[in-house]
Amino acid sequence: MHEYAVTESILEIVKAEVRQAGGGRVSMITVVIGELTSFASESIEFYFETLARGTVAEGAWLEFRPLEAIASCGGCGGSFTPGPRHVLLVCPDCGSAAYDFVQGKEFYIESIEVSA
């Protein structure tokens, strides 16, 4: 449900970028979603179809690039990738449960493809 607001935000950024680049039609938008966030790409696609109608991004392909979570271990200083089941982790090397995520909370527009 919170994807509605997020999709509006994606469109706003895309429209501003296209304006700045001197116009054109958007054919593809690449969005990076960290796996620790709770944004569902299917819902973004669903809202995008409606919200983009009549804009420079109507019909554009949404390319989602998932970004895996990476944790940095406070015990041994190493880092590990917890995979999709990222709850209740311990470091596979030293067994410590003290870790910080250094990647996986990202949610940004990487690039857009524009044709004249």
Binding site: V6, S9, I13, E17, Y108, I112, E113
Partner: peptide, 14 residues
């Protein structure tokens, strides 16, 4: 033409 954006989707909220 490819435009590098690298902008946080939640930038306005942030």
């Amino acid at each position: 033409m490819k435009i590098e954006v690298k902008k946080n989707v939640l930038q306005n909220n942030d």
